[in-house]
């Protein structure tokens, strides 16, 4: 049995390819998180402004991304968008686009909630000092909101990382897709390959996501104290 582990995981460049796939998943996550957090912060701030039509549109945007399953989103950007708009970006860019728009939607809600939960007396004491609305946001509300939103943000990050496992559906060579290839290549000789490969992928995802999850739990506990 150990024989099959070694043969499947470490023969040739299998292990290196899996790591390569993992790397693809990670950088797609990181890029879409980075872009999504920036856009989401902006949208979140806009959602605290008094304009009703603006808030309605942004709310619609959020609900759309909440309701539509991520896999549908990926198909949308990969199959439909390029055809209808004549865009020919690489699949990984399209994936980042889809993920970033999703992250922005979710994060805008986190930001809005956090800004609104800063006590109103903080706003008033800032205004009473003569701060402008922008200065109030920049120096008082946003920094406090960031602390409040940290646990939910980390949570969102773990969800994004997990969801990258769908990337193979739009033929991106992520860790799952490569695992699949290795399994297929070894199916005849080592029927147990599927366990070893998915076992390894499980451990890899766990190693990345678990510390994030712990961190978010710790922060949340600290806040409740």
């Amino acid at each position: 049995m150990e024989h099959s582990v070694i043969n499947v995981l470490f023969v040739g460049n299998n292990f290196a390819r899996i790591m390569q796939g993992l790397w693809t998943s990670v950088w797609i996550s990181v890029d879409s998180l980075a872009a999504g957090l920036v856009l989401g912060t902006l949208l979140g701030i806009l959602r605290t402004l008094p304009s009703k039509p603006l808030r309605f549109i942004l709310r619609l945007y959020l609900e759309f991304f909440r309701i539509v399953p991520t896999i549908v989103l990926l198909y949308l950007v990969y199959y439909i968008l390029p055809r209808s708009f004549n865009i020919s970006w690489p699949a990984s860019w399209m994936a980042i686009l889809a993920f970033a728009l999703w992250v922005a939607a979710e994060f805008s809600d986190i930001v809005r909630g956090a800004i609104e939960s800063v006590p109103v007396t903080q706003k008033e004491s800032g205004l009473a000092l003569g701060l402008s609305k922008t200065q109030l946001f920049r120096y008082v509300l946003l920094p406090q909101a960031v602390q409040l939103e940290l646990p939910a943000t980390i949570n969102l990050a773990t969800r994004v990382i997990k969801t990258t496992s769908l990337l193979m559906m739009i033929s991106i060579m992520d860790v799952i897709a490569i695992g699949q290839q290795i399994i297929e290549a070894n199916n005849q000789k080592y029927p147990t390959a599927v366990f070893w490969i998915y076992g390894l992928i499980f451990i890899l995802y766990f190693i990345i996501d678990y510390p994030l999850s712990l961190w978010s739990k710790k922060l949340a506990a600290k806040e409740n104290r």
Partner: peptide, 17 residues
């Protein structure tokens, strides 16, 4: 407001600073 200072019952210092 720069000419009219105000202090509240609940102090309201900015906790992030």
């Amino acid at each position: 407001r720069q000419k009219i200072g105000m202090v509240f019952q609940s102090y309201d210092l900015f906790p992030n600073l």
